[in-house]
Amino acid sequence: MSAKESTRVEYGKTLAQLGAENPQIVVLDADLSGSTQTHHFAKIFKDRFFNVGIAEQDLMGTAAGLALGGKIPFASTFAMFATGRAWEQIRQTIAYGNLNVKIVASHGGVTVGEDGGSHQAVEDLALMRILPNMVVLAPADGPETRAMTRWAAAYHGPVYMRTGRLAVPVIYGNGYVFELGRGSLLREGGDVTLMGIGIMVQACLDAAAGLAQEGIEARVASLGCLKPLDWELVVDSAQRTGAVVTAEEHMVTGGLGSAVSEILGEHCPTPLQRIGLRDTFGMSGKPEDLLKHYGLTADDIKQAAYTVMARKASHLASPVMDRQAPSLAGR
């Protein structure tokens, strides 16, 4: 992949296009319009852009009021402050009231880099996924960001979308159309399924390419729509491959790994390995160093694939009753 685009930049540019197409769209920011990229919209539509200053709680409440008044507000700030600082405002007003507010938060994950753990949201997807009425999205690349932003503007209801700071490889074609509750099958394979969200989709593709050189055929599913999750794609992939790896630039609790575990645990128990942060905060450093440190690389996904395939093999080799026997005997 040569072309790279940043999801936050593609969000900002798409928002500016949408502003020209739909006069009901308004945009709010909390003193981070350069970083979140809402400045593209702000420059053109001055009367429809509201900076509330460094006040994320007020940001969410004001957006809620604008939605109540018939507008389509997009509220942006860093993912940490949107979902952390203003979680209760989002819960009490936007989600509980089922209001037409789009929260698009940038700087998700550890690839924020040098700013460190205070600014790296690694729990935002969990905080939003737990809310009734909320749709939760995390695009993998530029085209998916553009499609999701356009979809969110047309959809009536609360939406959370996470964008990232870095430029990332382009995966999807420009004709990509986003559909609520649908993931994408990016690669077929029968040995293991790699399920990714956000920047980890590319890492899954890279891991699959590496595995292919070793004769392992990995299926790759992109699950940028975390809520509602593509239940059918998850279960079908698990049934076809019998081994699943999830990968997210987020805690393994509450995000994609949790969501997939929940579905598989209830409907299709399958050996699963989760790639993500494990009970830890982020830290300062170069994004690539941080991805390595937290085990978020294509190589980590490959290792997880080996592990989960070994578990699949042992499951197939030993029927359920045999596996239970030793523990019963040991009592």
């Binding site: 809620a64 009021g65 507008k71």
Partner: peptide, 24 residues
């Protein structure tokens, strides 16, 4: 108009409504 009960949030909502009324 909107759920309330968790204190401190209604004035922000009213601001949003006031901005929407002005724009409309």
């Amino acid at each position: 108009e909107i759920p309330t009960g968790s204190l401190g949030q209604g004035l922000s909502i009213a601001n949003g409504l006031a901005l929407a009324a002005r724009l409309n």
